[in-house]
Design a protein around this nucleic acid. Structure first.
Length: 129
DNA sequence: ATCGGAACTT
DNA sequence: AAGTTCCGAT
């Protein structure tokens, strides 16, 4: 029996493309970026101190050289309905993670990693099986 | 600055 | 599905 462990880089369900909120948490986790983005205020709340730089770094990661905060923030806004993030109104460049919807798990690469709870709105017709 | 529709990409 | 690009409205 063949064990399909070997090659599963970007296409397999387990290891897909980097999500923006993963990337945000990645920066948040590193102290060297505290001048750029950092936790601030309530639990799960963070402020983007240098929007242009965060956008530049995100663009680097996704190979999107024309990335800017206008576009990045649009992506963040899509998280509102997904209940991953929401805006802290009144506070400039400040957002807050919805940890009610975001589950904490251990992860080998990071101290902590957050995975999104499966929405499971998917119709499991299972044409494959 | 922030929001969200719309068309488009992967 | 998860953004990216563009943009008019607030």
């Amino acid at each position: 029996v063949k064990t399909p462990i070997a090659s599963s880089p970007e296409s397999s369900p387990g290891s897909r493309q980097i999500q923006l909120w993963h990337f945000i948490l990645e920066l948040l986790q590193k102290e060297e970026y505290q001048g750029v983005i950092a936790w601030q205020g309530d639990y799960g709340e963070f402020v983007i101190k240098d929007p242009d730089e965060v956008a530049r770094l995100w663009g680097l990661r996704k190979c999107k050289p024309h990335m800017n905060y206008d576009k990045l923030s649009r992506a963040l806004r899509y998280y509102y309905n997904k209940r991953i993030l929401h805006k802290t109104k009144g506070k400039r460049f400040t957002y807050k993670f919805n940890f009610s919807k975001v589950v904490l798990v251990n992860y080998p690469l990071l101290d902590m990693k957050f995975i999104c709870e499966e929405e499971s709105r998917e119709n499991v017709t299972d044409g494959v099986k």
